[in-house]
Each structure stands twice: as C-alpha cells, then as structure tokens.
Design a protein around this nucleic acid. Structure first.
Lengths: 312, 312
DNA sequence: CATGTTGATGCCGTTTCGGCATCAGCTATA
DNA sequence: TATAGCTGATGCCGAAACGGCATCAACATG
C-alpha cells in the first residue's frame, strides 16, 4: 500500500537521517536514486530544500515547510491504513508514546496492561525523556502521544488535556516529618534533601521557591532519575520532591509517605499536559488509548484532590 | 509542483466526476491511463474503491476512506504551496466560500471588497446554496469556508463560530405594523404574508410556530429567494420574515422596516454557523479572511443586540 | 598528505506510464 | 427490439521515469 511518490518517502527519510546515503541504506536503494529524487523535488518546488554541508543535509525554511506537509501526509496515510484494517475486523497498530519519567511507575504500566487485555493486537512503543524532548519528538512525528510538564507548547502541538498534581515531599516511614499532614520547604531543608538536577522539570518548579529563602540549603544529594530519588527517599537517605503519581506502589505498601508541599499557605502545583500533533487525525486505536489516558489522569487528579483537600 | 503520484490525483478527479472518461477529459489524458491507475490503486489497497455501474463509478466504503485521505493530502498541499508563495513576498490564492443567501446583500460584499483592497492578489469564489448543501460542499472539499444555518454538523466539519440573529418581520415603511417595536406571529398573519418555501431554512424555523397557532393562515405568496421576498416586502406586497442581515441597504434608506419577532414573550433566533473541514489546516490567506468573517459577524450580532435589547 | 566521508552525475538496463485502438456490457431511444 | 451512445477494461507499443553501478569533486579528519 505505497501509493505516494517515492520523492516524499525519500525526502522523509533524508530529513530524519540528515544524510542521503544514510537514507538510502534505510530504504534499501542506491544513494543516487535518493539524491536524484531530492534534486527533482527541489526543482519542482523551485527552491532548495536542504543546505548541503560536508557532514550531511540540513533543512532550509522551505524544506521545513515541506517536512510539515510530508509529515501530515504520511501520518494521515497511517490513519487511513488503520481505518481500512479496522474495517476488516482486526484492530491493530502501534501507539507510540513519549513521556516523562513520573508516569512509568504506575500510570502507564497500568493503562497499557489494561488496554492490551482488551485489544491484544495493539502494540506500544514508549520512550522516556525530558519535557522539552517530548514536545520535540511529537513535532518530528516520532511519537503519537506526548505527556510532559505543561510548558508553553508550540502552536503545531495540541494540548488535549491539562491535569494538575500537587508537588510534595517524599520521606521514609520513620522520618521525623512523616507524621505531618503537609510540610513547607523550610521544614524540609532542615533535613538532608535529594535534589533534582536541572534536566528534570521538578528542578525548575522548586528552584524559584528555594531562591526566595534566606538560608542557603546545605549540600545534598542530586540526581536526574525520579526512580532513584524515590528509592533513596524510601531508604531514609533524605527528602525527595515529586508528585504522587510516581509512588503509588511504595506508598500503598506504607514504605514511603507523601507530604503535600505548602508554600506560603498555597499548594505547589505540577501541571501535566497531554499533547498530540495539531495537524493530524489520530488512528482509531490511538485515539481510543488517548481517551483512556485522559480519563485515567483525570481520575487520579480527582482522587488526589479528595485525599488532600485544598484550603483555597 | 506536482510531487504526488498520479494515482491520487486521478482518483480525486474520478471521485469528483463520477466517471473515468470524464476524469480523463478533465486531466487531459487518455481514459486508459486513468483506468489503469485506479486499478493499480485498488490492487495496492487490496479492496475495490469504486462500484462500477453502467452510468459511472460510485465510491465504496473503502473508497470513501481513501477519498478522505486524498482530500486531506491535496488540501494540505494547497496550504503548503500557499505558505511557500507567501514566503517569497506575494500573497496570493483563492478563497472559496459556500454560503446561504442571507449573506449576499451586505456581509459578504462588504467583507470581500474590504479584503481585496488590502490583499489584491487574493481572489474569491462564492457560491450560494442551501444550508445542507453548504455542509456537503465543505465535506466534498469544494469550498474552504461555509456559512449556513447552524444545524447539527457532521463530525468531519468544525464549527468555527456560532452567531445568533433575531428573526423578524419585514414590512414596507407605510405598512400598518411599521410603527411597532416588535410583532408577534399572530399580528403578522392578519396581513398578507410572504412565506418561504421549504428549501429555505426560514421555513423550518417558522413552521413549528405557525403550526401552534389556532387559526389557519390565509393563502399568501411563497418564494424561495430571500432577495425576492425582501423586495416584495419593500413594495408593500406583504410581510416577509428573515434576519436583519439581508436588509442593510434598504433599511438604511428607510424603505423597509425590521420588526423583531416575539413568540410568547421570547425572541425567535436564527443561528448562523461558520464551518470549515475539521481535518485541515487552512492556508494563511484563507485563515486571515476567516478571522475577518468571524469578527464581522460577531460585530453585527453585537450591534443588533444593542439595537433590539432582549428582555430576558 | 592520505583516507574516509559526503552529495552529484553519466551511463545503461528495467520498470512504469500513457496513447491508440478495440472489446464487452449496459441504457436510452426510436 | 434494434440501434446508437455511453461506460470501463485490455493488448500493444513507444516514451519517459526510475534505480543501480561506477566515478568525480569537495570537504573533514587523522
């Protein structure tokens, strides 16, 4: 089912690999064929699509416009294929997810397992990365659904949903703070603290608050893994900060305590956004999973707000 | 700039004309070429795309799915072309509008004239038709922007805006009702009335109200042209019904009077919807005109509500 | 300066495409 | 019912496009 000209498929491969020869290897054709298709394309558009360097090819402005069009075409072709396939019974296809680390502990595994039990022929590709990389992966068409801290998103992405979760401190069951209902940042900083490195978005949430404090916090552990930070906190090494999303299992087992953070009387929110490419209609199986994801996150948001009611 | 396989262009032409030979004439190629491309396409999709009758071809279910994909591709190609062109300075392109008759008196001519004075290289195609035909033209990709009475719209269309206008009675300056502020349907039916035929949406707005009345209205003039009905009312032939959108000039010149309709104490609304295909990103020049259209209609809605304040 | 990249290009065999003529099936009209 | 006019499909053939191989020039790296 390849009824689009080789030109646009070749163009797409060259854009992704950044090299004609690499694209040719990917496509199992000679590099001359790829080169000629690109030249033909440039002649028809009437403007160069790539800047040739000795190392490879980079998109020009017109090239980026064409890349956008080609991505729209190929993604819509995917949707069409999926629609045709679902017509003849079997639902199949792949859902590709790019998300930040906080989802990997319970939200995603629960959802994927539950979805697979109902639609076994839908497969998943999940890649964990930083928030800005999530948005970039979506823009480049390397993922269908993105979950990231809700920054200002580029206009070619659509924010399907926005859910807010309270940022809190994670301490071991035996920690002196463990009996409290909420904690302030000052109270936490009296103890050893497990800090997030700048590549984690939690860093950018907490940094402005820490900067406001008069005392300089004492040296502490720093890490770039939500997972590691959580496990360290569970072992009583120090106080970690994150949302409740990533500690479902440990908190159920009572090994770890989540204390909502209080900053001058108001909660500290971490906004989670769910994104898709704007210029795109999702295949049915992807749309279906997306709806479940939105519902599940909404459900967790609701449950959490019920557990830690806010004194507005 | 034709970098898509002939297959999809041929398919598109066949879908529009409903015939291979007609498509071939349209494309200036032999019918055998078209026939073969369609057969190849069907082989690649693995399912027939058309049902062959002696009269021509009709889309199958899979064919309609492909038609949707092909339309997305070709419309996005248009957008790409427009983007590239606007990069090199000159804004050009065509805005194709499908709308109902009420817009032709002042809204559209004003807007188009104003837009053309600023962007001379943008041309317009405007086609007047019934509300359901407007939606159908959009679905078929035969128009970029549709303006119609806001019915339930199919899911592949997006309602960009919804503006409500009061339905009212149109009478000549000398008409006995002309001095009133508002009128009821009963009051109007005491005079000769110019009715809309069922092909106009006004018919469907008024019919349920008329049916509620005890008295059967006396025979009156019936017409299917907003324009004609307005001119008849201006000549004192009878009372016509429509929104204030179509009588700007005549009402300014004082030849005709608009009396908002009162039905059991509440206004009778006519909802106007602005539509575009959902799975589509509009070219910049089309999007720009669309924004002006929405603003202008919103402005008229506001002005009208100020002129005839509602006693909620 | 040598070596390994990169993309572009000339040459040539294969594949695809399009045009012409023709065939079979159906419809409308006389 | 017979005929004329339409429909799409197909065999044949020349033209155009495509892809593979070998090679070239330009550049980066050691």
């Amino acid at each position: 089912m390849r009824f689009h000209s080789p030109s646009i498929q070749y163009f797409h491969a060259v854009r992704r690999t950044g090299s004609i020869r690499a694209a040719a290897r990917l496509l199992n054709v000679a590099s001359s064929a790829v080169s000629r298709q690109i030249l033909k394309l440039e002649q028809e558009v009437g403007s160069p699509l790539f800047e040739r360097t000795a190392r490879g090819l980079t998109l020009t402005t017109v090239g980026e416009m064409l890349a956008r069009h080609v991505m729209n075409v190929l993604q819509d072709l995917d949707r069409f294929r999926s629609d045709v396939a679902s017509l003849s019974g079997a639902w199949h296809g792949t859902v590709s997810i790019a998300c930040i680390e906080s989802l990997t502990e319970s939200v995603l595994p629960d959802l994927i397992a539950s979805h697979r039990s109902r639609a076994r022929r839908v497969s998943f590709t999940t890649e964990v990365m930083g928030s800005s990389d999530v948005l970039e992966a979506l823009r480049r068409g390397e993922a269908d659904i993105g979950i990231a801290i809700a920054l200002r998103h580029p206009p070619d992405l659509r924010q399907v949903a926005l859910k807010r979760f309270r940022l809190g401190a994670l301490v071991a069951r035996e920690h002196p703070l463990a009996r409290r209902k909420t904690v302030t940042l000052e109270q936490c900083l009296a103890f050893p603290v497990i800090h997030a490195l700048p590549e984690l978005s939690i860093y950018h949430l907490l940094q402005p608050l820490i900067a406001q404090l008069s005392e300089t916090p004492e040296p502490a552990i720093q890490a770039n893994s939500i997972d590691l930070m959580r496990e360290l906190a569970a072992r009583g090494v120090g106080v970690a900060f994150q949302t409740q999303l990533g500690i479902n299992r440990l908190s159920r087992e009572g090994q770890i305590v989540f204390l909502p953070l209080d900053n001058a009387g108001s909660p500290v929110w971490s906004d989670l956004g769910i994104y898709v490419r704007a210029e795109r209609t999702l295949p049915a199986h992807t749309e279906s999973f997306l709806q479940e994801l939105v519902r599940e996150l909404g459900e967790r948001e609701r449950r959490e707000n019920a557990a830690y009611p806010q004194v507005a």
